[in-house]
Every structure is written in structure tokens, then in C-alpha cells.
């Protein structure tokens, strides 16, 4: 399909024009979040989807990046934008010793270690009050009133992320990451220093996630340990973005980011207020109560979504695109259904 080839460029053009055409702060805000999640989700996909080292602790890197940006202002009096540079760097500084020790662990044990890292970082940010102001958090003045600059910076970061990962995955490193994911023993015996390359994959992922954190500090103007080191709002969300879009697919995280931010917003606002309005219209106490529960239970909604997507779309929206089309009867069944997964490493002679 030719359209598939041009889709990324068409999408990019739409994204560039979006805030100018739509001229709506609320939607622009949501799109900034989507673009930020494209960065985080793609980074998670690199280490978990492509390299097979599932991380439950992306918030450790995100929060480190955010705090780096914030502290540049409160401690050094610099512009928080330096955080885009140093935030990534600091996240790598955290990731390297962690990876050096914990990459000896395999599978679920590594995932648990990332979870621990997440919690350790959150506690450090909470307890080390002389540096971080603890639970009070960090409040800075945003540089721009308009959302447009943030939008375009986020867009630039998202595009850079996708391009960088594309280049990496097309190189020797990409082959090595995939080999490690597929079979670590085989990879070792093929001459791949698995420990070393896992560290590289983690370093790139941590860098990108840290930069996203720094962007968040700049854009939101306020962070505290519970927001940026949140296990469920950041670490789990990163996993959801990866899974829903399609683990180990190039554009999966981008699609996942869009879907997940939309879903999050849908739940958070109770179907943009529609659920509450309908409930109130019914004038029944019980229904209003139920509606309130539903709108507050967005975390549960998340959980249900994950279960459904693992059951019916194990390869995510991108990986199972053909399946979705068939379900919607837009495409006749075909047997050559070697889904999109991994055609990144595919070489054409």
C-alpha cells in the first residue's frame, strides 16, 4: 500500500498545521501531552519492545529530567530550557550504574528492579528537602503564555525521537538489540556483548525520557515527587502507550500516545462531561452516583483497556492493523498475515 509509505509525512504535515488551524488552547494542550508521550513511549519501546528489557520504572528517568530542569532554575538561576540538555544527561547518569548492576538480572527480575528504581528516586526527591523542597515541589514561571512554542518544541522532540530510533534500529545496534530480545544466549554466542548493548539501549531510552521530563517542567511550570515520579501516571502509562500502540513496532508508540492521552482525558473528564450530564438528566440519585464512580474510576478504565488490548490486539493498533481492518470489514481476510512487527530490522537486497 502506497499510502502507508506517505502516512508519516502526511501526519507530520497535519501536526505542523494543527495548532494554527484549530486555534484551541485545550486541544493544543492535549496534543502537547500526546507529543510528549510519543517521546516517552518510543523510548520505552526501544528498551522494552526492541531490546526485550521491560521497564516498569520510566518515571525514574522522567522525574530526573523534570527535576534537573526545575533545579536549574531554583538552584542555579539558569533557564529551565537547559534542562532539555542536562535532563537527558542526568537521566543517563542514573540509568548507567543501575543498568550495570541490574542487567545481570533477566526477565521479570529486571522489571522488578526498574520498579524499585522508580520508588527509590521518588523517595529521594521527597526526602532530600534541602535540594528539592520535598513534597512542596518546584514552581517556576513559564517562559511563554502561548502554547504554540511548547507545541512546536514538543513536536520537534517527538520527530527527533522517532528519527533517532529509526536510525538506531537500522544499524548494527538495532540488529543487536533485537538479537538480545529474541535470545540472549544465542546473541552472546554470536559475539554480541549483551550487557554492553543493553546499557546502550537503556542509555538512549533514559536520555529521551529525561528530555521529555524536562519539557514537562518547562511546560507545566510545577512538579512534585508524586507527579513526575508517579508509578502509575508515568511508568505504567509509558507501558500502556507502548502496548496499546504495538510493542516493537516503529510507529506503535506514536499511535499509542494518541490513543492513551485521549482515553485518559475521556475518563478524567467523564466523557468530556457527557456522562455526568446524561446522569443528571435522568434525575435518579443512583445513576448520578454511578456516573460519579465511573468518572472517578479512570484508573480502572485503564486497566480494562490493557486487558482488552492484550486479549484482542496483542500486537497493538499498529501491529494488528490488518486485524482491525478485517474486523471492520474494510479488508478481505488474507493469510499472508505476517504482521508488521519487526520489519524494522528487515533488509531488502
Amino acid at each position: 500500500m502506497d499510502i502507508k509509505k506517505y502516512l508519516p509525512y502526511i501526519t507530520l504535515a497535519v501536526l505542523v498545521l494543527f495548532p494554527i488551524v484549530v486555534k484551541n488552547d485545550y486541544y493544543t494542550h492535549l496534543m502537547i501531552l500526546v507529543l510528549m508521550w510519543v517521546v516517552i513511549g518510543s523510548a520505552w519501546n526501544l528498551i522494552a519492545g526492541y531490546t526485550g528489557q521491560v521497564s516498569f520504572g520510566d518515571a525514574a528517568f522522567f522525574g530526573t529530567g523534570a527535576y534537573t530542569a526545575g533545579l536549574m532554575v531554583t538552584k542555579l538561576g539558569w533557564s529551565p530550557w537547559w534542562g532539555l540538555l542536562f535532563g537527558g544527561f542526568m537521566a543517563v547518569l542514573i540509568a548507567m550504574p543501575f543498568g550495570w548492576i541490574c542487567f545481570r538480572l533477566r526477565g521479570a527480575y529486571f522489571a522488578l528492579a526498574t520498579l524499585a528504581l522508580n520508588e527509590i528516586m521518588r523517595h529521594i526527591a521527597t526526602i532530600w528537602e534541602s535540594l528539592t523542597d520535598g513534597m512542596v515541589g518546584i514552581l517556576i514561571m513559564q517562559d511563554f503564555v502561548s502554547k504554540l512554542p511548547y507545541y512546536y518544541i514538543a513536536l520537534a522532540l517527538a520527530v527527533t525521537t522517532i528519527v533517532v530510533i529509526k536510525i538506531v534500529m537500522g544499524s548494527k545496534w538495532g540488529y543487536y538489540f533485537l538479537s538480545i530480545r529474541e535470545d540472549q544466549d544465542a546473541a552472546e554466542s554470536l559475539g554480541i556483548d549483551t550487557h554492553h548493548y543493553k546499557m546502550w539501549s537503556l542509555a538512549i531510552a533514559a536520555w529521551l525520557t529525561g528530555v521529555a521530563g524536562a519539557l514537562y517542567m518547562n511546560y507545566m511550570g510545577f512538579i512534585d515527587p508524586h507527579v513526575v515520579f508517579s508509578l502509575h501516571d508515568i511508568s505504567i502509562m509509558a507501558i500502556l502507550v507502548g502496548i496499546v500502540g504495538g510493542v516493537g513496532t516503529h510507529y506503535g508508540p506514536a499511535v499509542g500516545a494518541f490513543v492513551m492521552v485521549a482515553v485518559q482525558e475521556l475518563f478524567r473528564t467523564g466523557g468530556f462531561g457527557i456522562v455526568m450530564k446524561l446522569a443528571k438528566a435522568s434525575e435518579s440519585e443512583f445513576i448520578i452516583d454511578m456516573a460519579q464512580v465511573i468518572t472517578k474510576a479512570h484508573v480502572m478504565g485503564f486497566g480494562i483497556l490493557v486487558v482488552l488490548s492484550i486479549l484482542y490486539l496483542p500486537n497493538g493498533f499498529v501491529g494488528d492493523w490488518d486485524k482491525i481492518l478485517r474486523f471492520l470489514r474494510l479488508k478481505r481476510p488474507n493469510n499472508m498475515d505476517n504482521n508488521d512487527i519487526d520489519n524494522i530490522g528487515e533488509a531488502k537486497p
Binding site: 540488529y175 533485537l178 516493537g248 519487526d342 528487515e346
Partner: peptide, 21 residues
């Protein structure tokens, strides 16, 4: 222990990278 989700060619390319840049 093939690299299951990679093509046969990619399996072999991955190991050829030990000597080729």
C-alpha cells in the same frame, strides 16, 4: 535458538556484524 521473529537473512546479518562494520 533462532532469533524467532527475524527473517533468516536478518538472523545471519546479526552475526555477520561481528566482523563487518
Amino acid at each position: 535458538k533462532p532469533l524467532q521473529r527475524l527473517s533468516v537473512l536478518d538472523n545471519v546479518i546479526a552475526s555477520a556484524y561481528v566482523r563487518e562494520n
